[in-house]
């Protein structure tokens, strides 16, 4: 009973209703725009060349049974997760070290600052030359997409911990390791979470572009008609060269949904590991 009420409240929550309403309006406008030539005899600029949502849905429906489509999504996700995971695994310890050791910071930071403004995509040719496989090149580019934000946020977070916490912990008998584990780590977590969330957004942008530029890593999997083996980026590119405009839109929306889900999942994870920031 309580649960049903709760569900009802959540479902009919004003913000949620507003969001649903906005999406519906968006789709309706899109439909009207796409079909403007047929329906009103007037081609709305820009939008009229884009396939209408109902046509997209038909194509999408057909693709749902297509292993190649799922394979593309799976490959992109895998690249995102491995690149992002590596960025976390390397970026967080590096950031902490930079924040904690003045010497280390002095040595690493200048190089870091010179490399940081280079857009990940500018690395594509170099990455293709450096790394033995296309797959590794794409993962590397993806890694770069999240790496810098994670490092910068970790450094800033660790440096901005109130020194009184260290004094209090020291006075109460904490060892250096205790201070690290119980003050520095939790004190930096909110910034790490923030950096990771931003990084996750960049990673999806980067992976798709890298897939398109590098031919979808097609050296390792035969990129067939549907672009299987190349990831969603290549799927879109392939749809473009193959002339299936509906499929382009399907690919784009798939990336949007995948990005939304991974950011949402990350946000939930972030809230779970920083319970003290939760408003209840």
């Amino acid at each position: 009973m309580r649960l049903a009420e709760e569900m009802k409240k959540r479902l009919f929550d004003p913000t949620r209703l507003r969001a649903i309403f906005a999406i519906v309006v968006f789709v309706v406008l899109w439909e009207l725009g796409s079909r403007s030539k047929d329906w009103f005899g007037y081609a709305a600029p820009w939008i009229s060349v884009i396939p209408a949502p109902d046509a997209v849905i038909v194509v999408w429906w057909g693709l749902l049974g297509d292993a190649g489509y799922w394979q593309s999504g799976y490959l992109s996700l895998l690249r995102v997760l491995s690149g992002f995971g590596a960025a976390l695994l390397i970026g967080v310890p590096l950031g902490l070290l930079m924040a904690l050791s003045r010497n280390f910071y002095g040595i690493v930071f200048p190089t870091f600052e010179v490399l940081r403004p280079i857009p990940p995509l500018a690395w594509v040719p170099a990455a293709i030359i450096f790394w033995p496989t296309q797959e590794l090149s794409i993962a590397f580019i993806t890694f770069l997409g999240a790496f810098y934000t994670i490092v910068i946020n970790t450094v800033d977070g660790a440096k901005s911990i109130d020194p009184r916490y260290f004094e209090a912990a020291r006075a109460m008998g904490s060892s250096g390791w205790d201070v690290f584990r119980r003050i520095i780590l939790p004190g930096t977590l909110p910034s790490i979470t923030l950096g990771a969330a931003v990084g996750m957004g960049i990673v999806w942008e980067v992976v798709v572009a890298a897939e398109m530029i590098s031919g979808g890593g097609s050296s390792m999997g035969g990129a067939g008609a549907s672009g299987a083996g190349g990831g969603l980026g290549f799927f879109i590119w392939n749809s473009y060269t193959g002339g299936s405009y509906e499929q382009i839109v399907v690919g784009m929306l798939s990336i949007g949904i995948a990005g939304y889900l991974s950011s949402g999942g990350l946000r939930m994870l972030g809230e779970w590991i920083t319970p003290w920031l939760r408003v209840r």
């Binding site: 209090a168 109460m172 008998g173 205790d178 003290w276």
Partner: peptide
């Protein structure tokens, strides 16, 4: 631990519950 400071703006660890904060010293 024989001289403990209570600061003007407080230095309770925000990431620990009140109980964990209070129990912190003797554990350390």
């Amino acid at each position: 631990a024989d001289r403990i400071v209570v600061f003007q703006n407080g230095a309770l660890f925000p990431w620990k519950t009140n109980l964990e904060n209070v129990a912190f010293g003797p554990i350390m």
